[in-house]
């Protein structure tokens, strides 16, 4: 039977079903094909999961009323059935056991995330243990920071042995200069060293210390 005669709506490869940050008004069930769930980070998109026929997705926004936490993109051709939020909640109101399957799916996902998280933690401590190079460790710290904060430039500085200046051990961006050394009390970094507290500066050009 032709695809156009079966249940759901047909999507082509690369079509976006919803984007991260959008308001969620429906959840979805894959009838055929695959859907990639991706999350954007400063260093690019990360694929969280690849879902297949029979899987549900998009349910989180319906229950926590927050914007979509990730983007759903069709991988190859696919057919997707949408389930409207209002109709779903009306059905759940009549029969609360309808959420059993959704809870089961969410529980499985949390369980998998716990496993991933534990594995990640193990790997990280492993990586730190085997990273003898200060530069490698600093680069890893900077990379992790980039995943958390969108930034154009960044660097990790360490106090020199004489504690009189800061030397750049890892850097990225157009203004990155790993040979540069700063006097220990200069600039924003100097303030952070002196006060001993982290600081988030959204626009350094507007900061008089820069």
């Amino acid at each position: 039977m032709k695809e156009g005669e079966l249940l759901g709506r047909s999507y082509s490869n690369g079509e976006i079903i919803f984007r991260e940050g959008e308001k969620g008004e429906a959840m979805y069930v894959i009838q055929a094909g695959k859907v990639k769930i991706t999350k954007s980070t400063a260093s690019g998109d990360v694929t969280i999961a690849t879902l297949e026929s029979g899987d549900i997705f998009g349910e989180m926004s319906l229950f926590d009323r927050l914007p979509r936490s990730a983007t759903a993109t069709v991988y190859g051709d696919a057919r997707i059935l949408s389930i409207d939020k209002k109709k779903l909640f009306a059905s759940i109101d009549k029969d609360p056991t309808l959420v059993f399957k959704i809870l089961e799916t969410m529980s499985k996902r949390i369980r998998r995330l716990n496993e991933d998280f534990t594995a990640l933690k193990k790997n990280r401590s492993g990586i730190l243990k085997i990273s003898f190079s200060v530069e490698d460790t600093c680069n890893m710290i900077l990379e992790e920071a980039r995943n958390l904060i969108k930034a154009d430039n960044g660097s990790v500085m360490l106090l020199t042995d004489d504690e009189k200046s800061l030397s750049i051990k890892a850097a990225f961006g157009t203004e990155a200069d790993s040979k540069l050394k700063l006097a220990v009390w200069d600039g924003i970094a100097g303030d952070v060293i002196r006060i001993g507290r982290a600081e988030l500066v959204n626009n350094v050009t507007m900061d008089s210390r820069f």
């Binding site: 069930v29 059935l81 389930i83 409207d84 059905s91 399957k101 089961e104």
Partner: peptide, 10 residues
């Protein structure tokens, strides 16, 4: 159709 899909009966 939608209720069965939510129930996991696709």
């Amino acid at each position: 159709v939608q209720t069965l899909a939510v129930e996991g009966i696709n």
